[in-house]
C-alpha cells in the first residue's frame, strides 16, 4: 500500500508541474499581452507557488504517517499510543502558519484589486479610449462615442493606450472577457460596470461572453484587433466614411435574439437607448418579448456565427 500512495501523490504533483511549465503558450491567461493581464498573471503565479508548497507538505506528511504507522506484520504495539489526544503547540503552529500565508496572499490581492479599478499606470500620459460594450442575446455591440462608430462582434483598439470599457447588457447577464488582455466583468441590464484593459502587443485576441446566457451562448464571441495608433486611426476614418449609419429600426432588428455576422456602422445606438441606464431594461422586452417564447434551435457543434 505504501508504494502505491507514495507514487500516487508524486505523480499528481509531477503532472501538475509538467503541464504547467510546458503549456503556457496555449494558455492566454498565463501569457498575457497587456498590463492588466500581467498583474493578474503575477498574482496567479505567486499563489500557485505558495499553494504547491502547501500541497507538497500535506502529501509528504500523509505519506510519512501512512508508511510509519500502518499496521504491518511484526510491528506490534511499538509506537502505538491510543491515548494520544493532541498537541496544543503543534495545533497553534498549524493555525499560525496558514494565517501568515493568508496574509501574504491578501496584501498583493488587495493592492491589485484597487489597481485594476484605475487605468493602467503605463499609459497614464494618455486619456483612456472609451468603448461601450453591450451584450445582447447572442452578440456584442461596441460603440465608440468619441469616434461615433459602432461595430458588431469585433472591435479595434490602439496599443499602449488604456481602453475604458463601459459594460452593459440589453437582456441576460453576460460577462465581457478577453483572456489575453485581462480578467472579465459582468454586463448587466439597467446598470453599468467599467473595465480597464490595455494591449501592449499588436495582434488579434479572442474575446467572449463567459457567463451563461442560454441557447447560443457558446457562439457569443468576438475578436479584438489591437494595432498601432496610426493603424487604429485609419481604421476609424475608413469606418466613418464607408460604413452606413445605424438607424433605430436597424438597431431594433439587430437586437432580436439570434446570431449576427461582424458589422460596422458610422453612428452608435447610444442615441436611441443606453442600456446602462436604469429603466432601459424595457427596451428590448417591448420589442422582442414574443421571440423568446419559441427560440430557434441552434444546432450543436458547428460555428454558426458567420453563416
Amino acid at each position: 500500500m505504501k508504494n502505491k500512495w507514495g507514487k500516487y501523490s508524486f505523480l499528481l504533483a509531477a503532472a501538475f508541474l509538467l503541464i504547467l511549465t510546458a503549456g503556457c503558450s496555449g494558455m492566454p491567461v498565463l501569457d498575457p499581452k497587456g498590463p492588466v493581464g500581467e498583474s493578474q498573471k503575477n498574482l496567479i503565479v505567486f499563489s500557485i507557488v505558495l499553494m504547491l508548497i502547501i500541497v507538497l507538505t500535506v502529501m509528504v506528511v500523509l505519506t510519512y504517517m501512512l508508511v510509519k504507522f500502518r499496521e504491518r506484520p511484526g510491528r506490534g504495539d511499538k509506537d502505538y499510543d491510543p491515548e494520544h489526544e493532541g498537541n496544543t503547540k503543534l495545533e497553534i503552529i498549524w493555525t499560525v502558519i496558514p494565517l501568515i500565508i493568508v496574509t501574504a496572499l491578501s496584501i498583493p490581492t488587495v493592492i491589485t484589486i484597487y489597481q485594476l479599478e484605475e487605468p493602467p499606470q503605463s499609459s497614464s500620459d494618455k486619456e483612456p479610449l472609451v468603448v461601450h460594450a453591450t451584450s445582447a442575446d447572442w452578440k456584442w455591440f461596441f460603440s465608440y462615442p468619441e469616434q461615433n462608430i459602432e461595430t458588431v462582434n469585433y472591435l479595434h483598439i490602439p496599443t499602449d493606450r488604456a481602453i475604458e470599457f463601459k459594460l452593459s447588457s440589453a437582456d441576460s447577464m453576460g460577462s465581457f472577457w478577453v483572456p489575453a488582455l485581462g480578467g472579465q466583468k459582468y454586463t448587466m441590464a439597467n446598470m453599468r460596470t467599467t473595465l480597464y484593459l490595455q494591449a501592449d502587443e499588436a495582434g488579434t485576441y479572442k474575446g467572449r461572453n463567459s457567463n451563461f446566457t442560454g441557447t447560443a451562448f457558446a457562439e457569443q464571441t468576438f475578436d479584438v484587433h489591437a494595432e498601432s495608433t496610426e493603424e487604429f486611426q485609419s481604421w476609424v476614418e475608413e469606418t466613418q466614411q464607408s460604413a452606413p449609419p445605424l438607424s433605430q429600426d436597424r438597431y431594433d432588428e439587430l437586437l432580436a435574439p439570434g446570431l449576427l455576422q461582424e458589422m460596422e456602422f458610422s453612428s452608435t445606438h447610444l442615441q436611441y437607448v443606453d442600456h446602462g441606464k436604469m429603466g432601459s431594461g424595457d427596451y428590448l422586452i417591448n420589442r422582442h418579448q414574443d421571440k423568446f417564447e419559441d427560440l430557434p434551435a441552434l444546432e450543436g457543434g458547428e460555428d454558426v456565427a458567420n453563416d
Partner: peptide, 15 residues
C-alpha cells in the same frame, strides 16, 4: 484560496 483572490478571480471566473 486562489479563486478567493478577487483580482485573479477575474481570470478564473466562469471558466
Amino acid at each position: 484560496v486562489m479563486l478567493a483572490m478577487a483580482a485573479a478571480d477575474y481570470q478564473y471566473h466562469n471558466t
